[in-house]
């Protein structure tokens, strides 16, 4: 405190030296983290090549199936059947990209310094401690966001055929853009989730001070967050639309369904005895009652109305922006907390 008011020292030093320029941290960050960043580039590169090759064949199959005339012919049916349905495998596989990148890049940034003792070197140089931390974290976060953002575009392109609005009519697999396996891999969600994973990893590393436990903790925290977000937050970003129309488009995200009778809530799912009574045969696994009638068709004459609350596909981008927004805010908060801890930390 007193140092702030002390005038220039006799030997010519400024009492409070001007901070070193930010740009110096670029080279420092690069030299310290180039192997980690190269690892990310290789991982995303290999996945991108795979995405590209499988995406190409996917598009060919889709174009062939949708352009085929007449639609019901045996040739066209073969083309529809030939359309690959392996999106779930790839979608689930790619779910691990953000947590892996985030945890393995984020957690060691500070944990390795603290574990090996190099923080005693880094934090006693002329570069102010908080500037050192802020510059490093922002540069790494920006690099990861840019890389995964670009990769996200490719993923979006890859899955596009599954979102075709005419797919259902042709018998092709139809995905809702909100499908939990692909929503977080497209648009701004992929870089945002990667950023969040990175921020979680960085904070875990600062708190736990050891690389491996920090990586594990970051992965666990990320899994909890992703699970909770998909289950409890995402369905409620915007108030769902409610309809009694039973023909909800296949691209919509069904949030819940329930039945009413005489304007009052009846049940969430028709009880078995009711179905037995009104639908001539017990329901099959496809939800169809006897005689090919759906629940709706056989229950409607008895005064039951089916209601559906859903998120229409047109809300994809608002949902992406909402998710990207809160994840970005969370990441900024976690990184700010980390920098505060770095500045405050007593060895």
């Amino acid at each position: 405190m007193s140092a702030l008011t002390v005038p220039a020292r006799p030997d010519g030093d400024e009492a409070v030296p001007r901070p070193l320029p930010w740009r110096r941290m670029a080279g420092v960050t690069w030299r310290q983290h180039r192997f980690a960043l190269a690892g990310v580039a290789v991982l995303l590169g290999v996945l991108a090549v795979y995405e590209w090759l499988t995406g190409e064949s996917l598009y060919h199959a889709w174009v062939a199936a949708t352009a085929c005339h007449p639609a019901g012919s045996a040739t066209c049916q073969d083309l529809v059947r030939a359309f690959p349905e392996n999106f779930l495998t790839l979608g689930s596989l790619l779910q691990v990209v953000p947590p892996l990148i985030g945890a393995f890049i984020g957690a060691p940034v500070l944990a390795r310094e603290l574990e090996t003792g190099t923080f005693r070197y880094a934090w006693t140089q002329g570069m102010r401690r908080w500037r050192w931390a802020l510059a490093k974290l922002v540069l790494l976060a920006a690099a990861l966001a840019a890389a995964t953002g670009g990769f996200g575009l490719l993923v979006s392109w890859h899955f596009q055929p599954y979102f075709g609005t005419g797919n259902q009519a042709l018998g092709l697999p139809q995905l809702s853009p909100f499908d939990s396996d692909v929503f977080s891999l497209r648009g701004v969600a992929l870089p945002a989730w990667t950023l969040a994973a990175f921020a979680i990893g960085v904070l875990a590393g600062m708190l736990i001070r050891r690389v491996l436990p920090a990586v594990v903790a970051a992965l666990a925290a990320y899994a909890g967050l992703a699970f909770a977000a998909g289950l409890y937050l995402r369905p409620h970003y915007l108030t769902p639309l409610v309809t009694r129309d039973t023909n909800v488009p296949g691209t919509a995200w069904i949030i819940s369904q329930w039945w009413t009778k005489d304007g009052k809530f009846a049940f969430g799912f028709p009880p078995f005895n009711l179905l037995n009574q009104f639908c001539s045969a017990p329901p099959g696994p496809s939800g169809k009652g006897g005689g090919g009638l759906s629940f709706t068709q056989c229950l409607a004459p008895h005064g039951y109305t089916q209601w559906t609350s859903y998120q229409p596909a047109s809300r994809f981008w608002p949902f992406q922006l909402i998710e990207g927004g809160w994840l970005l805010a969370l990441s900024v908060l976690l990184i700010a907390a980390t920098i505060w801890l770095v500045q405050r930390r007593a060895a």
Binding site: A3, V6, D13, A15, V16, P17, T124, G126, R128
Partner: peptide, 10 residues
């Protein structure tokens, strides 16, 4: 008289 850990000290 520079505070330990201050930029001027470091």
């Amino acid at each position: 008289g520079r505070r330990a850990g201050s930029p001027a000290a470091l």
